[in-house]
């Protein structure tokens, strides 16, 4: 598959990149590692007139100590480089989530910012243009139908970015830079449950840094995919527990690949916070995830399958959190 023609700009700094993107009025796209964007260009899913290369921008580089002992990660950092960083290696859950993204080949090119901005996916749109034209366009491709859930009046494509649920569970926030300056935004508020407009990035705005607060606790991540080490997940779950292993004071459990945004599993959390983290409560909490998930989009999987996967993954995740020694960040 060939790429369509486009212009290519290499800004010298962040301000220039933002200017260039803002001036294009939505007709230019930021190119980080390109592992998703270039595929979507080949599929003619997007058609920007210009690509603005942001990977080398100095403002998007480096892993630094953040405020209060946390981590301050450049959005342009390669996933492969992050895996080799000692502070990320010490954060077991985040390390596992980054390692779950695609294959080593993909992580050698892909960036953290690109992963957080990964567009939602479904089995109809993420295909070549020739494949798609065999059917009428859908909500995402300017049509009025969903081929996946024919009764749906909106796009329900899935957010499958593996680092997203983990960073939401860690309470991460973003530093964004746009034409109107810089702003900070909790990652949880960056996403919205809309398959077409899955995030709240303003035109011309870029993720500059990802801030992970220090967490005196444990983190864990689990994913189930058709093949380990290349495929998007049927589901993934991420968790952070703070306090005694059997009696956490704080707990956040977040699922990925189940909706157009990462989903906090609050029923499961509440049950553990009330009754402690024991083999019995783990089973009950895993069962409680059904109440959190509501109606689930079973893309790429038979009806009911995703809920069973989340149930199983949450049971394993909670067992990880009850036993890991690690203190996050």
């Amino acid at each position: 598959m060939q790429l369509p023609p486009f212009d290519y700009a290499v800004p010298r700094n962040l301000a220039e990149a933002v200017d260039r993107l803002a001036a294009s009025a939505g007709n230019a796209a930021a190119l980080a590692g390109g592992t998703d964007l270039l595929v979507n260009l080949k599929y003619r899913l997007v058609a920007p007139a210009a690509l603005v290369a942001i990977r080398g921008l100095p403002e998007l580089r480096g892993v630094r100590d953040g405020a209060g002992g946390g981590l301050d990660i450049g959005a342009g950092e390669l996933l492969a480089d992050l895996l080799e960083h000692p502070r990320i290696a010490a954060l077991g859950g985040l390390h596992a989530a980054i390692r779950a993204v695609g294959s080593q080949h993909i992580r050698n090119l892909g960036t953290l910012g690109g992963n957080l901005c990964l567009p939602t996916r479904c089995w109809y749109t993420n295909q070549s243009e020739a494949w798609r034209t065999a059917r009428t366009p859908c909500w995402k491709t300017e049509g009025l139908v969903c081929h996946v859930i024919p009764s749906s009046t909106t796009c329900r494509a899935l957010n499958s970015a593996d680092t997203a649920p983990m960073l939401v569970a860690l309470g991460a926030s973003l530093v964004l830079r746009g034409p109107r300056g810089e702003r900070a935004l909790p990652l949880a508020d960056f996403y919205q449950d809309d398959g077409v407009n899955q995030h709240t990035l303003q035109p011309g705005e870029l993720i500059v840094r990802v801030l992970v607060p220090a967490v005196a606790g444990r983190s864990a991540f689990r994913k189930l995919a058709a093949r380990t080490g290349l495929d998007y997940g049927y589901a993934s779950v991420a968790g952070v527990a703070i306090g005694p292993a059997r009696r956490p004071r704080e707990l956040r459990v977040v699922a990925g690949s189940v909706a157009s945004r990462p989903v906090r599993l609050r029923h499961a959390e509440a049950l553990v916070l009330e009754r402690g983290l024991t083999p019995e409560t783990i089973e009950a909490a895993a069962e409680a995830t059904r109440a959190d998930l509501g109606e689930v989009t079973n893309l790429f999987s038979p009806p009911g399958y995703k809920k069973r996967v989340v149930r199983g993954l949450v049971a394993k995740l909670l067992a990880d959190l009850a036993t890991t020694k690690e203190r996050a960040a």
Partner: peptide
């Protein structure tokens, strides 16, 4: 596949890492 999923286009970059030449612009 030209979409990052098979690895037959792998070359080695200047950092020594395996790189997919189907997902890299020559200009980069």
């Amino acid at each position: 596949c030209t979409s990052g999923a098979c690895g037959v286009c792998t070359v080695q970059g200047d950092d020594g890492r395996a790189v997919l030449s189907c997902l890299s612009l020559a200009i980069q």
